[in-house]
């Protein structure tokens, strides 16, 4: 039971980051390879505020998320007005720079040996509630004006601009929302593991999240959530295959990209209306089969 709860907690924490990546990649078509660095900032900042600053948990998390979002703004500011390639290149550089900085500031962060002694406060319930809240938030964002603007500019930035969408601002909004979600997941992570070190936040982790989003379906929040659930629970269950994990992931995603580029679920979203429609079409399928007999 402890094992299951451990796995689920970690899956829920990952889920929060992945829905953040969904906002950035799925909705807006931007890729961040430094997303994990924002998680690192969130976890170090909240951890430091509690352990060395003596703050209570909740305000520390709020402050850490705000700080990370500010950093995100500074990184995003020069980038969102440019071609979308720049954001992936710049965030990749940002991730490396943050890792170097965390390794270097030994007196504050413990350097490469990690930052220990964070109290263990994240429970399964907190993680689950947070994940659900994050998913609902993103679902509302997707159907809101902003979400539709994001989808419009993902398809064609120039056309979106011609329709009067402030492309720069919408891109920035999406970027900051995803940064804030990732930072929050970093806070939960720090207070769950009670230990963080810089090596876990490289570009591999950011790439992992993008892969999860694409695995389930880049255009569907349901798909991305499902993809994150499957791909982050899988390696926890199959611990013996730890080394092969990335290879298996990669092969799966290559297959999906080549043969079903829209991902497992495509555009399908889990809404009551869609469920009813699917049920009806399934019924019709089985119905006709009976008639032919």
């Amino acid at each position: 039971m402890a094992l299951v709860s451990n796995i689920l907690t970690q899956v829920f924490i990952t889920l929060i980051s992945v829905v953040g990546v969904y906002v950035l990649t799925g909705l807006t078509g931007m890729f961040s390879l430094g997303q994990a660095a924002f998680m690192a900032i969130g976890s170090y900042a909240s951890g430091l505020l509690v352990v060395k600053g003596g703050m209570a948990l909740a305000p520390a998390i709020v402050l850490a998320v705000l700080m990370t979002t500010l950093v995100g703004y500074l990184v995003g500011y020069p980038v969102v007005r440019l071609r979308r390639d720049y954001i992936s290149l710049v965030t990749l550089g940002f991730g490396e720079a943050i890792a170097a900085l965390l390794n270097r500031m030994t007196s504050l962060t413990g350097g490469a040996s990690g930052f220990t002694g964070i109290p263990r406060r994240t429970t399964l319930l907190l993680a689950a509630v947070s994940a659900v809240a994050a998913i609902i938030l993103v679902a509302f964002f997707k159907t809101s004006k902003y979400g539709r603007q994001c989808i419009a500019l993902r398809g064609d930035e120039l056309a979106a601009k011609a329709m009067g969408i402030n492309v720069t601002r919408v891109k920035m909004t999406a970027f900051l929302l995803s940064v804030a979600l990732t930072a929050y997941s970093g806070c939960l992570y720090a207070f769950y593991m009670s230990y963080v070190d810089p090596s876990g936040f490289g570009w591999k982790k950011s790439a992992d999240w993008v892969i999860m989003v694409f695995f389930g379906g880049v255009n569907s929040l349901t798909g991305s959530t499902l993809g994150a659930f499957i791909l982050s629970a899988l390696p926890q269950v199959l611990r013996g295959l730890q080394n092969y994990r990335y290879v298996i992931y990669a092969v799966l995603v290559l297959l999906i990209i080549n043969f079903k580029p829209s991902g497992l679920l495509g555009e399908w979203e889990l809404t009551p209306r869609n469920l009813a429609r699917t049920a009806r079409s399934l019924g019709r399928k089985f119905g006709t089969r009976k008639e032919t007999h």
Partner: peptide, 11 residues
């Protein structure tokens, strides 16, 4: 595709 290939080679 490119980050997937990167993950594959590194893996």
């Amino acid at each position: 595709s490119s980050i997937t290939l990167g993950t594959l080679y590194e893996g």
